[in-house]
C-alpha cells in the first residue's frame, strides 16, 4: 500500500480543498472531542449568543468519548462514535465556522449540503479499534463540560492519527462510491467447519 500523506493542524483551506473521498491520510496536531451532550450544549450556547469553549474556525471535532484513563497512561481507549447523531447540530456549527470533522458512519443530506456550501471535510476514523487509536494520542486534557463525565470536551494532541476521507468538499462520498460499486463484488464463498 502506498504511504499515507501526513496532514498537520491547523488545517488550511488549501489542505482541505485537495482531499478526495477515499483518500487515506495521517493527521498530526490538535483535535477536540465532542459528542451528543457537547453538541446539545454548544448548539444552545449559539442560540443564546453565549461564547463557545472552542474556536470553531480552527477546531477539528472528533466525535468520541474515551474510556477512563488508567494510572500512568495519557488516555484510555478512544475511537469514533456514530456521527449521524450529531447531524441535527452540525449544519449550524459549519455555518459558524467548523470545517473538519472526524467520526464514523453516514451523514445526513443537510450536513453534506452544508459541507459543500462552506468547503468542509468529514474524515472516518476506524471504529472498534480504540486501543490502537489510543497509541496516536500524546496528551489529553478536559477543556469543557467536565460534569458530562465521558461526554466532556477534551483537547487531544495526536500523531499520525489514521483517517480516511469520507466526504470531501466537492460532494464526493466514499460510502456512496462503495454502494454504487457493489455490483462488482461477488459474495465470498465461506468454508465452514460444519
Amino acid at each position: 500500500m502506498k504511504k499515507r500523506p501526513v496532514l498537520h493542524t491547523p488545517l488550511e483551506e488549501r489542505n482541505i480543498l485537495g482531499l478526495e473521498a477515499g483518500d487515506q491520510v495521517l493527521l498530526s496536531g490538535t483535535i477536540v472531542t465532542a459528542r451528543d451532550e457537547a453538541h446539545r450544549r454548544m448548539s444552545r450556547a449559539i442560540e443564546e449568543g453565549k461564547e463557545l469553549p472552542i474556536d470553531l474556525t480552527e477546531a477539528i471535532i472528533f466525535y468520541a468519548a474515551p474510556t477512563p484513563t488508567p494510572p500512568g497512561r495519557v488516555i484510555g481507549s478512544i475511537g469514533p462514535t456514530t456521527s449521524g447523531r450529531m447531524d441535527l447540530y452540525t449544519p449550524l456549527l459549519i455555518e459558524k465556522g467548523l470545517r473538519v470533522m472526524i467520526g464514523k458512519g453516514v451523514r445526513s443530506p443537510a450536513v453534506k449540503e452544508a459541507m459543500r456550501r462552506h468547503g468542509a471535510v468529514y474524515f472516518g476514523a476506524p471504529g472498534g479499534v480504540a486501543a490502537l487509536l489510543a497509541r496516536s494520542i500524546r496528551s489529553a486534557r478536559v477543556i469543557a463540560f467536565e460534569d458530562a463525565g465521558p461526554e466532556a470536551m477534551m483537547e487531544l494532541e495526536v500523531v499520525d492519527f489514521p483517517l480516511v476521507v469520507i466526504n470531501d468538499n466537492r460532494g464526493g462520498d466514499l460510502y456512496e462510491m462503495v454502494l454504487s460499486a457493489t455490483q462488482g463484488f461477488s459474495p465470498a464463498s465461506r468454508p465452514r467447519s460444519d
Partner: peptide, 12 residues
C-alpha cells in the same frame, strides 16, 4: 456479503 459494504463500510 453481496452488499459490498465491507469492513468499516469502506467496501469489500
Amino acid at each position: 456479503n453481496g452488499l459490498g459494504i465491507g469492513a468499516q463500510g469502506y467496501g469489500g
